[in-house]
């Protein structure tokens, strides 16, 4: 067994010109992105904790789940728009599905079932993921502007500060993800992504899904929980 492994390794080396030995056989970039994602857990943990700690502590409205009264005595409804955010949540969730299909298209390039079919069209899936990300950002922009019209800015109260910062941080992550996806799309258009490049799509996908997973937590903890 041991000799067989060494033999194979030799051949592998002869056929690739620039091969890097790694002690685990795993790609450096993939190890790094997972460490990065681990770190991001703590980043969002700090943001989410703060949001939850400040829940119900705002001294003035607008408020997320409660009916509130302005100093002039007007009565207002809770500010969060659940139907709209449910729609944007749906878009982001589905973008994860599209993302795995983009990765599968690149990984399986040239395999039966992937040649000439939609399933094998990585450009389509990458573009679709980026588009869905952009759609999510559009929903967020709509939400933010309508909140501002209703009198909630990042300065208004503790809810405004923690809400805009938390969701804004997430939005910034989505934006970075969209730019990353567009970069991959550009590479795919320019020279075509091959199974050898799957790692490039893989690490982007891991990041993308993580951003999705964070939204799953935010959607429940910020929008639904009372």
């Amino acid at each position: 067994m041991a000799t067989a492994v060494t033999h194979e390794a030799h051949e592998a080396h002869d056929t690739h010109e620039h091969v890097h030995y790694t002690s685990t056989g795993l790609d450096n970039r993939k190890v790094a992105i997972w460490a990065f994602i681990g770190s991001e857990c703590m980043l969002f943990a700090s943001l989410i904790s703060t949001y939850l700690i400040y829940k119900g502590r705002s001294r003035v409205g607008p408020l997320p789940h409660e009916i509130w009264t302005s100093p002039s005595g007007q009565i207002f409804q809770p500010i969060l728009n659940i139907p709209v955010t449910s729609a944007s949540t749906f878009v982001l969730l589905m973008s994860s599905l599209v993302m795995v299909l983009a990765l599968a298209a690149v990984e399986n390039r040239g395999k039966p079932g992937y040649v000439g079919t939609l399933l094998g069209n990585s450009k389509f899936w990458l573009a679709a993921t980026a588009l869905m990300g952009a759609t999510f950002l559009g929903f967020q922009a709509y939400e933010f502007t309508s909140f501002v019209h209703e009198g909630l800015t990042i300065k208004t109260n503790l809810f405004g500060s923690s809400f805009f910062t938390l969701t804004g941080f997430h939005g910034a992550h989505v934006t970075a993800g969209v730019l990353w996806l567009l970069t991959l799309l550009a590479i795919d258009i320019k020279r075509g992504l091959t199974p050898k490049d799957a790692i490039l799509v893989d690490i982007c996908a891991l990041y993308w899904h993580f951003v999705d997973v964070v939204w799953i937590a935010i959607f429940t903890l910020v929008y639904l929980i009372k």
Binding site: I154, K155, G160, S162
Partner: peptide, 20 residues
């Protein structure tokens, strides 16, 4: 990440008028 977020809050408080 924890201090990064604490600093972001402080930075926003100082520059953008948040209430953290």
């Amino acid at each position: 990440p924890a201090i990064t977020i604490a600093l972001v809050f402080l930075l926003f408080d100082r520059f953008f008028g948040t209430q953290f």
